[in-house]
Design a protein around this nucleic acid. Structure first.
Length: 281
DNA sequence: CGCATTCCCTGGGTGC
DNA sequence: TGCACCCAGGGAATGC
């Protein structure tokens, strides 16, 4: 499941491989991927558009063309395929044909991914429109501080896992990395946000950055069907501490799998302690 | 308003 | 082997 490190890995690869190309045509094989316009308008707008840059906001990829901006969210299983002289698979939903004869295919087994096309080249206005408008701070933004988090979750009974997964607070974290961050921070995933003190919030922010930096350095996590592209796999799965693990790397007790914030959650019940005085669970 | 639940999808796993 | 069933989950929509 692509989270920030996986999206960033895809972004970097596509930047090298497709920036500078011009769209000759677009084929939409599954219309529901396109969210804010018709398939016809989508294809017509991109015909003749030159890709000048690829950016990222949270888990969204931003394809910056010279006459439009395309947002792409990979959700669970979306990926881009660069080599494409074979017949279409049933999971290839959008195909970009470039004037140099190459193709970029969007592949999404679960059809959960989304695309939004904006008929502007003004990045600021796109950032201020849905769906990016409500995005929270990037994890590496200097404005992400314990005070910022405290302001968002003061007295909140929501679980800290739910808070970290909330894209309107911090953008880019998903299930895997939240489990890892909470393990490193020795905080229980179900701990209510309001019970966390400033030191805990500071620790969480530090560990968010440590985990994401390491995951980006290793090219993301290859899990189940996720690969960065058809030819690149991430390696961070080899460095996971608790997510999908059977044994705690710290105390060697069994790792528990429970449900928090509607997500399968891995934790060490021994190492990830509840805040003092918490009476939940 | 805040938080929880439902929905969108399909491959993989399970039980019979 | 086949079939019914359930599960995984990010984010929008809906519900309380």
């Amino acid at each position: 499941m692509p989270e920030l490190p996986e999206v960033e890995t895809v972004r970097a690869i596509l930047e090298k491989r497709v920036v500078g190309k011009t769209v000759r045509d677009v084929l939409i094989r599954y219309e529901k991927i396109i969210k804010n316009t018709s398939s016809e308008e989508f294809a017509a707008r991109l015909k003749g558009a030159k890709l000048t840059d690829i950016s990222r906001r949270g888990k969204y990829l931003l394809f910056i063309f010279d006459k439009a901006i395309l947002l792409s969210h990979l959700r669970m299983e979306g990926k881009y395929l660069l080599a494409a002289d074979n017949p279409y698979s049933k999971h290839e939903h959008v195909v970009f044909f470039f004037t140099d004869g190459s193709e970029l295919r969007y592949h999404d087994m679960r059809k959960f991914g989304t695309m939004h096309l904006f008929e502007t080249t003004d990045l600021i206005s796109v950032m201020e429109s849905e769906p990016l408008k409500k995005m929270g701070l990037e994890p590496f933004d200097d404005r992400l501080t314990p005070d910022y988090l405290a302001g968002k979750i003061a007295n909140s009974k929501r679980s800290v896992k739910s808070i970290l997964l909330d894209q309107t607070i911090i953008s880019g974290l998903g299930n895997i990395y939240v489990d890892e961050v909470l393990f490193l921070s020795r905080i229980h995933p179900a701990a209510p946000g309001g019970t966390l003190d400033r030191a805990s919030l500071k620790l969480l922010i530090e560990n968010v950055r440590i985990v994401l930096n390491k995951a980006i350095a290793y090219g993301g996590t290859t899990v189940k069907s996720f690969q960065a592209t058809d030819e690149v796999s991430g390696r961070f799965q080899n460095y996971l501490m608790v997510h999908t693990k059977a044994e705690c790397p710290s105390c060697h007790r069994p790792v528990s799998k429970i449900r928090v914030a509607g997500r399968g959650t891995y934790l060490c019940e021994h190492c990830q302690i509840k805040p003092a005085g918490a009476d939940y669970l």
